[in-house]
Design a protein around this nucleic acid. Structure first.
Lengths: 223, 223
DNA sequence: ATACGTTTCAATCGAATGTTTGAAAATCGC
DNA sequence: GCGATTTTCAAACATTCGATTGAAACGTAT
């Protein structure tokens, strides 16, 4: 049984609930590391200190376990995962703050750490879980960022330029996660090799705010 | 046997070579669609019109087939996949041209179509193949783009600002591929729903060139 | 203490997978 | 045309996986 599993087992007083929680935690790691089909119920149960039949008992089958892993991650996110951006202050500062927080969420040591990897797998072959994740986690974040961009550009949040620019900002952040293995190889031995998430977020803020400032001046039309 | 397989079979005069080529093509599609472990040698051979033992005969085992799929894709790329950017003309125009070509390569109907998806799987769990891909395909492209950015900013190609800005440009393009399923859901019913790769590349060019222009003015130091 | 519902356990099943085998077929060199 | 080599084929093998089973262990309420 893993360390996490041990702690969870000792924490939980009611058994059954404890086994269920341990299975969910370990399953999240295994699904992220091996993928749905390559992750085996045997490994998950062994690492969780549970019997092979535990998955069938608690979740019906392997697919049910996978679904529940996403559900609990979403629920955990809904409780305390929102990026809170103050409603006042210069828009540039708020955009910069958003990028720092978002970068931290995407590339930092979040809880659970396996969530981003599992998301990448969903992007290759989406399941029903992706719709729920987009609805509950991604769309609110994107809409929040688009609100800042819209305010800065003086355009409605549904404007094409606003949406595209928001996507450009988000894209720069998630690249360091999605292409992390490539970035590491590309930047090996360069000046940006040891960049922290904070430094990267600041560059993205410099880059993006400069772009937005120029787009605001050029594109004359406001709402 | 699939249509592609039939065409390849009719094209090839030497047998053995034909089966090998069909296996490689079908294997690329299957590995991209299902992943290495979920793709079965039975499906690959059936779709390629080959016997189950063909993979063992031609590639030793399933892993050997996977390795060879990447090798041939790299070889195909080396022949005619380079992005040719003219050495003269305004740097802005060349950056815009690069982004259009790169966007086309990343999100367009390339040959083979399964290559980008296979790359995404490599980014989640890299194999030895990724090193070769970075060395042969990604690094040259990145270096070419960094050269343009360096020229525009008047800084050396190893400069931190140049590298980060190049990554920012690349990131905006690949986002539309890596997060395609998310982008589709986010943009459903918006003004950018039916955007073409060309329009997206143009926005990224507007966005990035504006950012670079501002960064060039602010950061005074040149080489 | 006893009966009942819940949870865990070892053992096993059927299906699917990668791989191997030895013979048949096809192709090439002469 | 004939022998040697290459390639294909059907069949089977060993392994691994997810799922199931029925009994045992556990906790709880009466």
């Amino acid at each position: 049984m893993s360390e996490v599993a041990k702690q969870l087992r000792s924490d939980a007083t009611d058994q059954g609930v404890a086994t269920r929680a341990r299975l969910l935690e370990v399953a999240g790691e295994e699904f992220a590391r091996r993928g749905f089909h390559d992750a085996t119920v045997r490994d998950i149960c062994r690492r969780a200190g549970a019997n092979i039949a535990a998955i069938n008992y608690h979740f019906g089958d392997k697919a049910g376990l996978y679904r529940e892993v996403f559900r609990t991650a979403i629920a955990r996110f809904k409780d305390g995962g929102k990026l809170v951006i103050p409603a006042e202050g210069p828009v540039e500062d708020r955009i910069r703050l958003f990028l720092r927080l978002f970068m931290e969420r995407v590339t930092g040591n979040n809880q659970p750490a396996w969530a981003p990897t599992l998301m990448m797998r969903e992007m290759i072959e989406p399941t029903e879980a992706l719709d729920e994740v987009v609805q509950s986690m991604i769309r609110p974040t994107f809409t929040g960022a688009a609100g800042l961009v819209a305010e800065y550009l003086g355009r409605p949040a549904t404007d094409a330029l606003v949406l595209r620019s928001t996507a450009s900002m988000i894209a720069q952040c998630v690249w360091y996660r999605h292409c992390a293995h490539i970035a590491r190889r590309l930047f090996e031995g360069t000046a940006v090799q040891g960049d922290t998430a904070h430094e990267r977020a600041d560059h993205i803020a410099d880059f993006s705010i400069a772009a937005l400032a120029s787009l605001r001046e050029k594109g004359g039309g406001t709402c």
